[in-house]
Design a protein around this nucleic acid. Structure first.
Lengths: 332, 332
DNA sequence: TTGTAGGCGTTATCAG
DNA sequence: CTGATAACGCCTACAA
């Protein structure tokens, strides 16, 4: 039962045939007699034979692993986005017999990424976000390893998979504008992240397509620490605003809390919406209007694309259009 | 600069010595002349030579990967716990030249775990939680692969690393009892997870050590879905309770929201505390009394232990004592 | 259809 | 201290 270390050679000898034939029977490459194949399959099934992946990796220079680059800045640590993406990726990779090697990168330290690339531990990489000065992307590009980035990028050589953040943010903003709101504030994270810029663009587009102009005094970007939000809210209130759009739900949660401190009623005194929704917002009161994306599906699509590239097919960048605008109490 | 496919043989030939010597110079095993070693080191530095891990893995039957089993039930998906643990593990494994292969397992489907084990893709495994019917643990034990579990277990053969959940939960409960609260409710998740049982034990211990008895009518376990919490709160309010202890902050957040619905003031009408704290609770109002553990450190310790086992040292189970009881507004 | 032999890049063994 | 040579387990021309 626990014949653990049985090799292809053992199989061959036991069956009185050559390793080559066994190999072919298993891989399906090359012609093998039906009866022979059946014999082999039955035997390996019975004895629970598994080809040694390391040996195969060495022989055909493939690892059947993909790398996933996972940012772990202070902010990203608690976001469920990456976890959800990974689940989607895992579903796809699993079904292709691939496994996932994670590479956590903090700040500019690419050493863990370099290690898995230089050591040939992966056949390709998924980058889970894009940045303005994207050192990981540049490194990967230079290294020649197949990779896919989740998020937008300027570089046409890089294959990306992304949600339609621009369209979604524009739509949500438009809805608020259509309600007659005009003095809308925007609070968002690091402008080093492309997604922050895209969300901002969507916000601006909504204004422009209605012939309105964004008041830059109401835009707060690079707010990487929720501590600052209390002050921002106080400042904003003096400016007599109609509503606040938060780029993610962590910011939204903080905004709601600080409003409560200031005895600001939502939505009566102020409307609040978020460009990203996760369970963080689930139990807030009032419930928050937000955008809902399918992160899992995004990850799955990224993995699918990467595997296609690895298989030699020429894949193209994709934009997933399915998102939901969830209108809740906070903007009534 | 981009001499990517340079092998040990290339190094040997370029230096006019044998592969063996180069190998020894790099690994440090076996005696090599100092001048020779220096030459080798200089050369590989300059030409950026990296030993092929796959070849090494094949030769010495080691992969320099560890597997991390990551549950992805509906509940676990958004918990930051696993992510934080993994960051801690990654810090340690990285410093030993190891990488992390994740195995997401949903429900009883062990296929991804089996794949990485049977394919010899990892040298050991970290199990990130323990269960009552722990099929992953049993499988690993049977397979003979070195592994460490995060969490408690009955099986003395299994090496574990865990926080002192029992002591922490007992302490927090004791503090509330010491404030004179007596009718304390408890809401928690699946009793299939050992941690739920441990937390419950801590709760009970606190009562017993004060000569009090737990009112089982106020204990709600196996609440795996926050939707039920609204009803529970309503029921509890009729029972005229003093406070609610939630096993994690997702539950706590929900409890607070539902209390607000019912116009219950916290802490005036009801005290609330949580056995686990994450950023989910960060911006709630009122701030919630809770236990604070260092998940990252927990992961690091687990990785350290696993690597020790892999290295052949005989490691022992560890309990990390450092946690914080954070007293906040919700129990004033 | 099947088998033989060589190679993938390292490490381990055993001589020198 | 150093070097051939044989594993490690699998794949793939090339032959038969």
């Amino acid at each position: 039962m626990t014949d653990d270390k049985i090799t292809i050679d053992d199989v061959a000898k036991a069956l009185g045939i050559s390793k080559t034939t066994v190999s072919r029977a298993i891989s399906g490459k090359g012609r093998v007699g039906n009866s022979t194949r059946a014999k082999v399959m039955e035997f390996i099934e019975k004895h629970n034979y598994r080809p040694n992946v390391m040996a195969r990796a060495l022989a055909q220079q493939r690892t059947f692993n993909i790398g996933v680059v996972w940012p772990c800045d202070y902010n990203a640590v608690d976001l469920p986005f990456f976890q959800r993406c990974m689940i989607g990726m895992s579903e796809i990779t699993s079904s292709f017999g691939y496994d996932i090697v994670v590479s956590l990168i903090a700040g500019d330290d690419l050493s863990s990424l370099k290690r898995i690339i230089e050591n040939h531990k992966v056949d390709g990489v998924v980058l889970t976000r894009t940045m303005v000065n994207d050192t990981p992307a540049m490194y990967l590009k230079e290294s020649g390893v197949p990779f896919v980035a989740i998020g937008k990028t300027d570089d046409p050589d890089i294959i990306t998979v992304d949600n339609d953040n621009l369209g979604a943010c524009k739509e949500l903003t438009s809805i608020l504008l259509a309600k007659g709101l005009r003095k809308l504030a925007l609070i968002g994270g690091s402008t080093n992240h492309i997604i922050t810029r895209t969300r901002y663009e969507g916000f601006v587009d909504a204004f422009e397509s209605m012939g309105l102009e964004v008041d830059q005094n109401l835009v707060y970007l690079d707010i990487e620490n929720n501590i600052k939000i209390g002050g921002i809210i106080k400042t904003l209130l003096k400016k007599n605003i109609d509503g606040v759009i938060c780029m993610d739900d962590s910011i939204a949660g903080e905004v709601i809390s600080r409003c409560r401190d200031e005895h600001i009623r939502i939505p009566d005194d102020l409307r609040v919406a978020s460009f990203y929704n996760s369970s963080l917002l689930e139990s807030t009161v009032p419930s928050v209007t937000s955008l809902n994306f399918n992160d899992r599906n995004l990850g799955a699509e990224a993995a699918r694309t990467l595997l296609a590239i690895i298989a030699g097919e020429n894949a193209q960048s994709k934009m997933l259009k399915n998102y939901e605008v969830i209108l809740k109490e906070s903007t009534k």
